[in-house]
Design a protein around this nucleic acid. Sequence first.
DNA 1: GTCTTGTTTCGACGTTTGTCGATACAGCGA
DNA 2: TCGCTGTATCGACAAACGTCGAAACAAGAC
Lengths: 129, 129
Amino acid sequence: MSNLELPVLDQGDAAACCSPMVREPLGEEAATDLAKMFKALSDPVRLRLLSLIASYEGGEACVCDLTGPFDVSQPTISHHLKVLREAGLVGSERRGTWVYYWVLPAALAKLSSLLQTPGAAAVPAKGAR
Amino acid sequence: MSNLELPVLDQGDAAACCSPMVREPLGEEAATDLAKMFKALSDPVRLRLLSLIASYEGGEACVCDLTGPFDVSQPTISHHLKVLREAGLVGSERRGTWVYYWVLPAALAKLSSLLQTPGAAAVPAKGAR
DNA sequence: GTCTTGTTTCGACGTTTGTCGATACAGCGA
DNA sequence: TCGCTGTATCGACAAACGTCGAAACAAGAC
């Protein structure tokens, strides 16, 4: 059944988690915390890195696989990976010569559920305007 | 039937929409586009503003309601609202003396579904309504 | 018209960010 | 041991960002 449904992944404060932010006003601390994660997603290169890592078979990718597809230098990629790691969005480990990165699904899920809107999707055009 | 399967909501390019970014690598354009939206969410004040607007009854709030809860000046709030608006996350309209803002649910839903991870986190809601 | 109140725009400022080349560190093989 | 390859850190720089006060604009009240 559910494949990874109990990562037990901390999630830290359950308060900031899983309750759509459109339901009740975000607290100051929660907002600061979440803003850091969104900031990590606010760069095209990092977004593509994250997507690329997750898309790799096994869900992890070697840094050596990640430098090719981009127009930026290797130190820049390394910097972006560090940002993603410090935001808690990916994990990493050195295995021999290479360093591997993988996405932490719980972090993405937290943000996803936070952005969920009650009746969303439907919302036939609202006012359009 | 399925509740959120064909919002038809403009969304501009459907390509960037609704397919979790962990499934396949994000394209360059899509990433640039999405990064702008995430950047709008990458500030604590904006995150709280968005949450606050959505939490207001009727789903919209007057600017006059939004300046109180923050420690920053009113022009700064106005600036943040502009950023949110230009990112397509909120809409606004002047009605007489006051200007009202509301959240655009489709935009949040787009980001939410994008961050969704295959087996990740419960998120049973889904259908919600 | 002239105030008054609500909101946005303008200029300026210090800080943060993304990028680079150069360099340091880590592990492997000869 | 030495060299080679893969990755991270350092220092520097320009560009972008968040913030402010001052000023402009918008709508209603007097």
